[in-house]
Design a protein around this nucleic acid. Structure first.
Lengths: 207, 207, 207, 207
DNA sequence: TATGAATGAGTATTCATTCAT
DNA sequence: AATGAATGAATACTCATTCAT
């Protein structure tokens, strides 16, 4: 019986496997130790590799971090509702979108945290962070302009308000997944988190 | 005969002067270089002191950072509207409060940034950060409970929504003062920033 | 029946071709980057080969460098005037010899520079370097002994003076080809370089 | 009895002593291990200091090497005959100068070797090396111009020939002090070395 | 023979902290 | 109280060499 190459695609080159092992390991280490404290050697150890191999695939810690962010970004976008959905079923798409943020921010906790921590210090990372925010911001700004047309939200500047709302969304997703400090460590279930964020957004947009 | 402290306040001890010089210098250096990159030696240089003296007053960088945060915290509270104001003139107090956040976050930019950056990594700093947020959060939660009594905002959990709104407020104050990335470097004047944040809060709280 | 090597020279084995490709590449890389900075990987890249193959032919960088020097040495000797010429046409042979040094030192610049740089540090390379110098030195020493017989150059120790003159010759050939520092980057044409070196040698030997 | 501060000048600051200790140690280590192989840690160990202290005084290995060269350069110039001597007693001054080169090149062997080794690779060091050569070269060039005026050495270009003679002088001083390879390890006494170099220079300049 | 991925020893550099003066 | 010189632990990065394929 021949190898089922159609089903099992040709095995990726060894190099590609190693590269991905390193990215996966980096995600683990960033989540565990935070970007700042993560050492190249730890990432390699987590990947079961010698330190030297790291530099065959990445220039430095920031470089592999960017690769992690790319992965996160693609995953987030793939999971987000399609643009059309925001037209046909606006509130549903916003709720859906909020849900995705909540889930993905938890799933990529270390990456998101690194984006916040490092983006504050490093302009290049800040640019990446902005890219992640940008899609959501555009949707909010578009929605506010629609409301303007309907005579609502006239006091809101579309871009500035969108930035604030996106900030609320992503900051809360980060913050509540990171620590429970704001609620004396009370547990927040997914439903509650999503429902509150959604309601706040709907209220703010007067929808 | 007691020293006439009322008239000629006792000249502060030299030590106290040095301590404050160091704190002031730390604030400058944190603003310029970010907490992470700030070096003890830089703080001392900025204060015009030798490195050795640092350790007479502080244990380490985190220790002097905490002193900066205390200063910020006191200044923020002193400038914020008194609790009573939120009863008698609720919207006015919220607007006033928003203004204060906007101004003080800019004024203490380096400290606030350090609070964000480091609070994400360090639980002790996270606690301080929470303390700064706490006052505002309590006010929002209280307001939401009032709205509940009036049959409004019934979908909002007071504590969770308050956390989200506080996040929006402080994150925006940080973010817009830090970089203009979200708006292609468009300048935001104080009026616009404050007005938009205020409107979003009022809408979200359905006031 | 023997292979007709005279007509169709046996195609060199693949191995030999690879070996020479590597040596040629090494010469290029040594000229470009200097011996110290040349990396095995660079030599292989220049040769269009994988790094692994290097170690099938050479033990290390010094080993391939020695192969380069051998090539240089053979070429230099092949091009130098035959010993007899120094008897029949002494000044002509010295001038000819000077010309050859000048030309070959430029042609094998990277190898010569490596010989200088590394011979100073490494005794084994110093031995090679000496071998390259030796022919020339012997000729000078022989010439001085002849002059002694003619009552000239009595203050010169043949071996020591020969070493000095050989040093002048090779150092100048290296130095003038390497940089123009000594002359504010003035260009030196071949004629001038050779003529001056020749005159200095003739004067020094009182010929 | 008061401290004889007039005789024993005020003790130099501790920092200056440490700096000089490091330079002295570097000279020792460069002589022993060659510039390339010298490690910062070894220099510090030789100076009896911790590694960290190195960077209080120097940026890197090249930086301390430059300090060594400066020391050498000053010492060489201080010991060389004054310019006037070359006018009043030309041959004496040349012999004297040759002697100084011979002595100082031995004394600063590691520095000179580093100048040769590294100057070949590094343009900045090449500049330093040129500075060391420059004085001597100018003297030779001046002398050749004088000879031209007297109808001698007409075949020599002053600058080019001066470069070659300076090369002979310094290269021989280096080479004979470094190894005895050229003479089958025969010992060369100072007299012989100096006499031969002097004679070659005088002959070459037709004096 | 050739490939190129993997290994890991070796070293420069930084900077918080200490301590003699 | 203050100085500033000294300490040394911690870590990123390079590259010769090996080895499975």
């Amino acid at each position: 019986m021949p190898k089922a190459t159609a089903v099992n695609p040709a095995p990726r080159r060894k190099a590609e496997v190693t590269r991905e092992k390193l990215i996966d390991a980096a995600r683990v280490v960033f989540s565990r130790d935070h970007y700042q404290n993560a050492r190249i050697a730890d990432i390699c150890a987590e990947a079961g590799k010698a330190v030297g191999v790291f530099y065959r695939y990445f220039n430095d810690k920031q470089d592999i971090f960017i690769a992690c962010v790319d992965q996160f970004f693609e995953d987030l976008n793939r999971a987000s509702p399609p643009a059309a959905e925001f037209e046909t079923n606006t509130l549903g798409a916003i709720r859906q979108s909020t849900t995705i943020y909540w889930i993905k921010y938890r799933q990529y906790y270390g990456v998101v945290a690194g984006l916040f921590e490092t983006g504050m210090v490093n302009p290049e990372i800040a640019g990446l962070w902005h890219k992640v925010r940008d899609n959501g911001m555009k949707r909010f700004a578009f929605r506010i302009r629609k409301q303007h047309a309907a005579g609502k939200c006239l006091d809101l500047d579309p871009d500035i308000a969108a930035s604030a709302l996106m900030g609320m969304l992503e900051f809360s997703c980060y913050n509540w997944n990171a620590r429970r400090l704001d609620f004396q460590n009370r547990e927040i279930d997914d439903e509650t988190a999503i429902a509150n964020l959604f309601t706040l957004l709907r209220n703010a947009l007067q929808m």
